[in-house]
Design a protein around this nucleic acid. Structure first.
Length: 865
RNA sequence: GGGCGGUUAGCUCAGUGGUAGAGCACUUCGUUCACACCGAAGGGGUCGUAGGUUCAAGUCCUAUACCGCCCACCA
């Protein structure tokens, strides 16, 4: 650090140089030693770019890794990316469209080639951004969920589950995304309450004995109705059960069946049953052996079954059908009704519930050990409240639809014979072998849900299914740092897959970090324009400032609100660290780290504060309470080290005879502070550390050790110095109240009471040239803290009335306080039941206050009060 | 409908049952000696509301309001 230069910390100059240095020193790879610490990072999508949530998530993992490295662990943070089936296919499809090409025109093979090409060109933006953030990840172990080796892992899992009967094909109502033309899982959808209508439609009886009215929010699906159901105990309808109805507009005959499903309280109590387009109706259909009709095609347009309505999309079809019903007198009435519309989070389009043949994984059996592991504490959620979120979901888990009608992804390794018998196999040849004489004619067209492959992440990245050294040494991993919205989507799957295939939990801790919101509490979103690009902050204020901004707000809370003002605070803190360090280095003339030195109380005080800070910071990091660590570091550095210790030491530093002790203390404190805050701010600390004149220090701060032994707790020194600081504050306040500018020397002041050796310290810090024991002659003003009175001669310069009022105010305040305490002490219950030390403390305070009030009264008299 | 967070100074948030805190903003003062992205001194709070437990409640319990998130088959 060139101490002659800038008093402003310039992150852009400093941050660029260290990343390469760390990498060149091999520090991103696990070192020797048995104490391992491993994280396999949540693989971001190849379509992704860094947002605030990422910056927090991956920054936190880097923080944990850096902390553990300082603690002597051999750390591996394994990076990689997810092929992200739907997201990536959308991006490339859109890109093609811009070129005027539809994906289906070029065909599957060409399309997939095109996606790979896209990935090579622009698929790792986010990984470069992680580097700017300072993330110390082992890039040599980088993995991708479609790597050759990863594919082997996926195949093995699928085939094994298939052969164990855990994977089955079945007709189910799935969430069909008509834009992406694929099924999506329940957790890829969300419900949006919207205003809709409830249509009451008359279904006539076949025997012309009138009609029955059903209520529906989706009249267009009536084209696929196969029955009408009522509750068996619904008296209005019991007589009618078994009769036949005629479907309006279509003419199909529908039985009136009895089932527990309809709620007599809702609508008319009669429900049209459409097994092809409603999951509940599907179940009713299964119970009653009804046919499942599907009336929409893959784009949610009416298909051949829809007769006159064929070719219309869902919205148009509804309009026409409602109009026709009305015209033909079937529409009884329409009322406004709130409906929870299920929307695909992938395309933002309402899903069409549609019965289709899909591959499923049975979950109950796999979930059992994953539930047990959490119940037994083998996996711990932090914050703890997410444990029940996980358990509740796992205990009610439903089978997982794993097939997706996409091209980009792991193609389902199921091959069919001519007579449609499925064989799961590693390859076509392998399938043929399994099929024997029957000829394999085709492979399943679908691909697997992306989460099927990312569920293997913690062990597939370490080489599984081979028993690699990495797998042996790094599994189970130590922690998963992730967002709460993928507890089901991902965490649960990793648990099940890890336990099933490696027989051990994939990670010991699951830390769920806070969601980053905008300043006014909204979701950050690019499409809404409410996002802030972390790269802008890194560019202007530095990665360290960004990291501090996020970390200093992150603990066990659910959300944090991102605000630019917070980044200013962080930037200012960087600047403070920079300048305080400059100060230290500017004052190291003649410094010899190894020379003996005589410590004073104030030195012992700051070293004691350092020791306490170390403890707090260490415990906070260990507990994922990063916010508390940041707070302790900020407080120690700014308030205690800079505002007090440095100021107090200036005099001694100027004196060659005295300077060695404060020099050593400053270097020691700075050194320890840098190590402790390095996980939060890796760049600036590395830069400052490189200038630290400590013999035998490590080449890089990143490979240094944690300052566990820095400082010694010394209560005597803390109490003593704290009372001096208290005295100083009182004296400064007195000066300020008299309008004496700070730092302008006042020739003389007096004190009564015991200051120990602190008088000169107090005098220096309160800008008093001569602080004498005793009481001045003539007029003076005073202030008191417990045990000490301070007097400032005024030489008739002050306004006596104002002074009287000032003292009066102080008396009032003290009296109120005293009254409160006395009341408490007069309460026998308090004296008997409260802890003795509390009672004792209150007694002492009472005495101090009485003393003080007496003194104030007598002073007030001096001014004619 | 169920569950989980939150409600503390103008703003953003800490707060282990024992006299309410920080940063920003605000007021006053201060730029010769690390830093004005700074320093000193201030003002500002019946801790959402109502009960309860306790000698003592921002903190524990119960109820309730509002904000947010998650889960849920009312067509």
């Amino acid at each position: 650090m060139d101490t002659d230069l800038s008093t402003r910390y310039d992150a852009s100059i400093v941050e660029s140089k260290w990343y390469q240095a760390w990498q060149d020193a091999g520090l991103f790879k696990p070192g020797p030693g048995d104490r391992r610490y491993t994280i396999t990072i949540p693989p971001p999508n190849i379509t992704g770019s860094l947002h605030m949530g990422h910056a927090l998530c991956y920054g936190l993992q880097d923080l944990l890794g850096r902390y553990k490295r300082l603690r002597g662990y051999s750390v591996l943070i394994l990076p990689g990316q997810d092929h992200a089936g739907i997201a990536t296919q959308s991006v490339v499809t859109k890109q093609l469209k811009k070129e005027g090409v539809e994906a289906f025109q070029i065909g599957r093979e060409k399309f997939v080639e095109r996606v790979w090409q896209w990935r090579t060109e622009s698929g790792d933006t986010i990984l470069r951004q992680f580097r700017s953030l300072g993330c110390a990840f082992d890039w040599d172990r980088e993995r991708f969920t479609l790597d050759d080796r990863y594919v082997q892992a996926v195949l093995k899992v699928f085939i094994e589950w298939f052969e164990r009967g855990l994977i089955y094909r079945g007709l189910r109502v799935v969430n069909w995304d008509p834009i992406l033309k694929t099924s999506v899982s329940d957790i890829e959808t969300e419900r949006r309450v919207t205003r809709g209508k409830l249509y009451h439609v008359r279904y006539p009886f076949k025997d012309n004995s009138g009609h029955l009215t059903i209520a529906t929010t989706r009249p267009e699906t009536m084209l696929a109705d196969v029955a009408v159901a009522v509750h068996p105990k619904d008296k209005r309808y019991t007589e009618l059960i078994g009769k036949t109805l005629v479907l309006p507009l279509v003419g199909r005959e529908l039985p009136l069946i009895a089932d527990e499903y309809p709620d007599p309280e809702f609508g008319t109590g009669a429900v049209k049953i459409t097994p092809g387009h409603d999951a509940n109706d599907f179940e009713v259909g299964q119970r009653h052996g009804l046919e499942t009709l599907v009336v929409f095609d893959e784009a949610a347009k009416v298909n051949d079954l829809g007769g006159a309505y064929k070719g219309l999309d869902r919205v148009k079809a509804r309009e026409r059908i409602v109009a026709d019903l009305e015209e033909q007198g079937f529409l009884e009435r329409t009322e406004d009704h709130e409906i929870a519309l299920v929307v695909s989070t992938r395309s933002n389009e309402p899903v069409e519930p549609m019965a289709s043949e899909q591959w499923f994984v049975s979950q109950t059996q796999l979930a059992a050990p994953a539930i047990k592991a959490v119940e037994e504490g083998k996996v711990r959620f932090v914050p703890e409240r997410y444990t029940s979120v996980y358990l509740d979901w796992m205990n009610n888990i439903r089978d997982w639809c794993v097939s997706r009608q996409l091209w980009w992804g792991h193609r389902i390794p199921v091959y069919y014979t001519e007579d449609n018998a499925p064989f799961a196999a590693l390859s076509w040849e392998d399938a043929q072998k399994k099929a024997g004489d029957r000829k394999i004619v085709r492979q399943d067209d679908d691909v697997l849900d992306t989460w099927f492959s990312s569920g293997l992440w913690p062990f597939a990245t370490l080489g599984w299914p081979e028993q690699t050294d990495d797998l042996k040494t790094h599994y189970p991993t130590d922690v998963l740092v992730t967002a709460r919205d993928i507890i089901y989507l991902w965490v649960a799957r990793m648990m099940m897959m890890g336990l099933d295939f490696v027989k051990e939990v994939p990670f010991k801790d699951v830390y769920i970090y806070a969601t980053v919101l905008t300043e006014d509490g909204k979701r950050m979103s690019k499409s809404l324009g409410t996002g802030v690009d972390p790269m802008d902050i890194i560019g202007t204020k530095g990665a360290d400032a960004l990291r501090y901004t996020l970390f200093s707000q992150t603990g066990y809370n659910q959300d944090i609100r991102y605000s630019d003002r917070r980044t200013e605070e962080a930037r200012n803190f960087c600047n403070k660290i920079w300048n305080a360090s400059r100060f230290v280095f500017m004052n190291l003339e003649g410094y010899d780290h190894s020379r003996s030195r005589q410590l004073q109380v104030v030195d012992e005080w700051i070293l004691s504060r350092l020791a306490r800070t170390e403890r707090t910071v260490r415990e906070s990091y260990e507990a994922y309470d990063v916010q508390s660590a940041c707070q302790a570091l900020y407080q120690f550095f700014w308030s205690e080290l800079c505002d007090w210790y440095i100021e107090i030491s200036k005099g001694r530093l100027a004196d060659p005879a005295q300077r060695s002790a404060p020099q050593w203390v400053l270097v020691t404190c700075l050194d320890a502070f840098l190590r402790m805050i390095h996980p939060v701010m890796p760049h600036i600390t590395e830069e400052v550390y490189s200038h630290l004149p400590v013999p035998g220090k490590s080449a890089l701060l990143m490979q240094a050790t944690w300052p566990e032994q820095a400082g010694t707790v010394n209560e005597r020194a803390e109490n003593l110095v704290e009372s001096w600081l208290e005295t100083t504050r009182a004296l400064r306040a007195l000066r300020a109240e008299l309008g004496l500018a700070a730092m302008k020397a006042v020739p003389v002041a007096y004190y009564e009471g015991d200051l120990g050796d602190g008088a000169s310290l107090v005098a220096g810090q309160a800008w008093i040239e001569d602080l004498r024991r005793g009481r001045p002659e003539g007029k003076f003003v005073s202030t008191s803290i417990p045990g000490i009175d301070l007097h400032l001669p005024t030489e008739g310069l002050i306004d006596e009335v104002a002074e009287r009022e000032r003292i009066g105010g102080q008396i009032e305040k003290a009296t109120q306080e005293l009254a409160k305490l006395e009341q408490r002490l007069e309460n026998p219950n308090f004296v008997e039941r409260a802890k003795p030390e509390v009672v004792e403390k209150e007694r002492a305070t009472t005495n101090d206050l009485r003393d003080m009030i007496a003194k104030l009264e007598s002073r007030k008299k001096l001014f004619g009060g």
